[in-house]
Design a protein around this nucleic acid. Structure first.
Lengths: 98, 98
DNA sequence: GGTATTACTTTGTGCTACAAAGTGTTTAGT
DNA sequence: ACTAAACACTTTGTAGCACAAAGTAATACC
């Protein structure tokens, strides 16, 4: 039986799940790109990013070329956590197909 | 790009997702079986079940053989909604693997 | 100098997951 | 007959978000 308690609560939320999915698909994302892609408000997006950062799932790199730019990426721990999360999704999918 | 807004909020919650997954895997579940399988409190479980019932995703059949028994099952709408939900999960998985 | 951009922070609201404890009915045990 | 247990709830309360809106500070462009 599936162990639903393994569904990392930090990732299993629409906002953060979408962020994690984007970060997993491309190496680096700027704040503005995430924002326009996900159509989130500044406050909402930064809150989720900080939550993921505090969990050690996301790295933050501030740069100052012309305009300030902040780049976000998955850490190794983040990639691992996301991969574990996806494994649970896979189990759910397998069950749903039976 | 994945349309995360299609992630049915009623299903995308740990408690209800686990319920829906069980209901999708087997035709009928008694309250007690769901409870012991998911290790939820009565109040929590019944609340989620009623939420799904109100959404039209779950049917409730009360029976009175010896002990009162209530059996829960997916409706057609529930099966459809779950299938749509799984389709989004599949997209997320596909992205995560790239 | 004034406006726009970037990346925030602050504040507030409203929802909801979840637990704990209580209710009413029925059946099993002695 | 009386007690205890099982079943399916309901009620109540709390704590924790998600999310939006508005404000802040620094820099760049015209």
């Amino acid at each position: 039986m599936i162990d639903f308690s393994k569904l990392d609560k930090l990732i299993h939320e629409k906002g953060r799940l979408s962020i994690m999915t984007l970060l997993a698909a491309r190496a680096e994302w700027r704040f503005q790109d995430l924002k326009s892609e996900l159509e989130m408000s500044d406050g909402n997006l930064i809150t989720h990013l900080r939550t993921l950062y505090k969990a050690g799932y996301v790295s933050i790199a501030k740069e100052m070329e012309k305009r300030p730019q902040t780049k976000y990426a998955l850490t190794e721990a983040g990639r691992k956590a996301f991969s574990d999360y996806l494994a649970v999704l896979e189990q759910i999918l397998d069950m749903g197909k039976s």
